[in-house]
Amino acid sequence: MTNAIEISGLTKRFGPILAVDHVSFSVTQGEVLGFLGPNGAGKSTSMKMITGFLRPDAGRSQICGHDMDSDPLAAKRKIGYLPEGAPAYGDMTPASYLKFIADARGLTGAKRAQGLEDAIARSHLEHVLYQPIETLSKGFKRRVGLAQAILHNPPVLVLDEPTDGLDPNQKHEVRQMIRDMAAEKCIIISTHILEEVNAICSRALIIAKGKIVADGTPHDLETRSPYHNAVTVVTAPQALEDMVALLKALPDVATLDIEDQPDSHGCVKVTAFPQEDRMIINQISAALQGCELPVREMTVERGRLEDVFRQVTLSDAHNAA
């Protein structure tokens, strides 16, 4: 079986700036790939090349086996694309706009009617169908953009910041929509909201300065965080010293991070980082059982995507500099 999306050596230069630098990856059906990176890292540029809007300086993108360069129409037919900011013709209504897209995609008869009905129902556009798009709120505009992307039920969806600027309820809805379609499609979304990656992506790809710097499941990436499997103990200020001594004595604890400024509840926090590949929660809880130290709270850190994100995108910047 061919991969739904096959990208190899994609490169784009804008004047002296290398926006995308030999990016290669492939995505299969059922995967939701989160495309992460700081602003200006080359996310949108990559997506524009994948969807055939920009011509790459080097490299190729294949969509369901169709090469974007040699057979652009066949490749474009397989993609639903939501460009950044969800642009649409403001003077049209969602109804007339979606009909235009359906015609432009060559849908006819029952397929066209079904596509329109599904897209409108899935994006909840029923109540605004006959209002000019320019009068709609940001959330509805985004939904119009999503509706046109899924109209022809494409096997590949490329969504550039689909939840940007939406309120929490709308974000939830859009994520639900993506989750519903995940199994039967191959989806790439770009975002800089990291919680979103945990919420919907089966795989995350971090790009910085035009290069891929990390690729894995959100869980894989979290394990690269120094906080992965660290244990945080919240205790009373007067017991802090004893707590630190107790934790330091444990063999698998590598280092400690101490916050000795009491928080709003008058509590202080100690975070213990494990030696490589060790679990320390058992040791710590056993040690705490045997003493009388007050413990308000104890949590195992999963590792934060933010830390990994900062780590890989900033270290790359340092290397470059």
Binding site: G52, F53, L73, K76, I79, Y81, P83, P87, Y89, G106
Partner: peptide, 14 residues
């Protein structure tokens, strides 16, 4: 200006 060009040119039309 509005970015709709990106829509237009990624539709399967010559």
């Amino acid at each position: 200006k509005t970015g709709t060009i990106e829509m237009l040119l990624t539709l399967p039309m010559p």
